[in-house]
């Protein structure tokens, strides 16, 4: 699954530690989500969406959706 969390975080001038604190997770968890090594649970994904004020599908997309969009 792809995500645009890094971009959304950078737009808000938040560090990974800032975002981690707001989400109540570790900085490693934020980093693992951004580098797409870890897919968050639905509840954490909703928390992220609520925090950045964007619909969840704007932040997280299945690989094939993004590939289709690019084509």
């Amino acid at each position: 699954m792809k995500n645009s969390l890094r971009v959304l975080r950078a737009e808000r001038n938040w560090t990974q530690a800032d975002l981690a604190e707001r989400l109540g997770v570790s900085r490693q968890t934020v980093n693992a989500i951004e580098t797409e090594k870890y897919e968050p649970s639905l509840s954490l994904a909703f928390k992220i969406a609520q925090l950045v004020g964007r619909p969840i599908e704007d932040i997280f997309q299945p690989n094939e959706v993004r590939a289709r969009g690019k084509g």
Binding site: G24, V25, S26, Q28, T29, A32, Y38, P40
Partner: peptide, 8 residues
């Protein structure tokens, strides 16, 4: 008390 990735 850990977060979901740490528990994993």
């Amino acid at each position: 008390s850990l977060d979901e990735l740490e528990r994993r």
